[in-house]
Amino acid sequence: MTGAAVALPHFEALADLPRELKADGSVVTAADRAVESAIRDVLAAARPTDAVLGEEEGQTGASGRRWIIDPIDGTALFVAGDNRWLILIALEEDGEVTTAVAAHPAQGSLWWATRGGGAFEGRIVGGRVVAETPVHVSAGADTVAGSRLGVVPEEWNRELVAPLKELTPALHWPIHPALMIARGDLDLAVQTGGQIWDFASTSLIVREAGGAYSGIDGRPQPGPGASVYARSDALRQAALEAMAVVSGSR
């Protein structure tokens, strides 16, 4: 809740929000830095011996327990006034993500999961989580053709996802496609780039909802590069095979 409380006032006053470009050309704002700083303050008070890795401040500390923070996932959406941006927080223990939270603060929704404990969706009302609901992926055929596909970002001029476009159309996503898969609203999603903080939280939520996740190279752990989410492991494999023509893994 702390991150949302810091981010929302910035989102409501975008005209006055300082922003700049990083070395990689992506946008960063004062809101990104303020949200990460606020989350770090909470973690420092509650878990002072844990390590923290954040997109804006890098890693601090060394421990078998590491918090992974993306203070504003989708900063380009944020500065455009698009409410689909998220705050992502995950806990990694001995190299495995065990706890995950994904919030759409501007939409008032929260998603979370624990390893072996399932995945859930709730609403944020008055700073409290209400309407807690277990989520689960949908059933269906394990073929890319006919599947409900989401791509992050919503661009089709990317060579990586072109083979999927030939098999099934991409759908507009009102919330992050990984969360839509967890809730049964999509079957397959590709995020065409990112770092560990982009995937740590959403990968666990999808898996705990009964789905599958991997990097484009098939690695099971979240990390840099493109990633695939699917409602089944067989569908994930089918998507990787379809994209192998471009990725060079075939």
Rank of each mutant, 00 (worst) to 15 (best):
V130D: 14
T98P: 05
A131L: 09
A76E: 11
S63W: 01
I68G: 03
G116Y: 02
V130Y: 04
E96W: 11
G117K: 05
G81W: 06
R115H: 03
G61L: 12
A100R: 08
R128S: 10
W111I: 08
I68F: 07
L91C: 14
G81Y: 09
L91K: 08
W67Q: 12
P71A: 02
T114G: 11
P105L: 02
A102N: 06
V97C: 00
S63A: 13
G108H: 00
T99K: 06
V129F: 06
W85M: 03
A100N: 00
D82W: 01
E92F: 09
D94C: 13
D82A: 07
P105G: 03
R65G: 09
F78C: 08
T114E: 15
R66K: 10
I69N: 04
L86N: 11
L77D: 04
W85S: 15
L110M: 02
G122C: 04
A76P: 05
G81P: 05
G127K: 05
A76V: 09
D94H: 04
T114I: 07
G122M: 07
A102K: 12
T75G: 02
G126N: 03
T98Q: 13
G127A: 00
L110Q: 15
V129W: 00
W85P: 14
W67S: 10
N83C: 13
G116A: 07
A90R: 12
